[in-house]
Design a protein around this nucleic acid. Structure first.
Lengths: 109, 109
DNA sequence: CAGTTACTTAGCCACATGGCTAACCAACTC
DNA sequence: GAGTTGGTTAGCCATGTGGCTAAGTAACTG
């Protein structure tokens, strides 16, 4: 699902949004709670939350006048999966280089 | 290094660039080789390569008229590290919830 | 040296992005 | 019901983003 990964990585490409992710991993929080530590206007901050929601990294529910946000850890895991797969490609290549180097060190007898 | 992570995740937020990363993990390649499978104008494709280089995900060297690109696996690993740390936060929280649930199932005797 | 190949620069486009302010609506409290 | 609180919508800005075409430079080949 290439498009989803686009959204996910794009959402993580901002320090404010990464801070929100970290906070939510510790438990659900309201918009106000999340906004507090950030020195920016609330509408701007809400845009960040919207982007996280569009990427599927968070979901929100409104209770009365309060909106609570929850992390979607599975989406984070999908991004990590992609990176882990790249690491495996790289490690496989290092293994092949290592084997080649060893073969070159042992001339035919 | 928050700004660097911004660039890294932003660079990975595009399917063309992710495809380039995957290809380079299998070994260095020229611009032409990398460009081949992508149906877009070369200058546009070069912009993508530039973004990968700015993010520190690749490095390039020019030999004559050919530019060869190499992956910088350590930068990929830094991104994976961040995600792995988030997973650990999440797992820690799940552990705490589990312990709490078990405590609630065992009333004081 | 002419033609070809590999890459580079410049300029354009529509849309997206991180911020802002202003105005507004809904829920809540006293 | 007035005032407060929590969030939403709309519009603005400068810059960035994925693409395009046109033109150019450098390296290579026969």
């Amino acid at each position: 699902m290439a498009n989803q990964l686009d959204f996910v990585f794009s959402a993580m490409a901002d320090p404010t949004r990464r801070a929100v992710i970290e906070r939510l991993l510790d438990g659900p929080a309201s918009v106000s709670d999340l906004h507090g530590p950030h020195d920016m206007a609330l509408p701007s901050f809400l845009k960040h939350l919207g982007k996280l929601e569009k990427a599927g990294l968070v979901r929100s529910e409104k209770t009365g006048r309060t909106r609570i946000l929850h992390i979607e850890a599975a989406t984070l895991a999908a991004a990590e999966d992609w990176l882990a797969r790249q690491r495996k490609l790289w490690e496989g290549r290092l293994d092949r280089l290592q084997a080649l180097a060893e073969a070159l060190e042992r001339p035919n007898t």
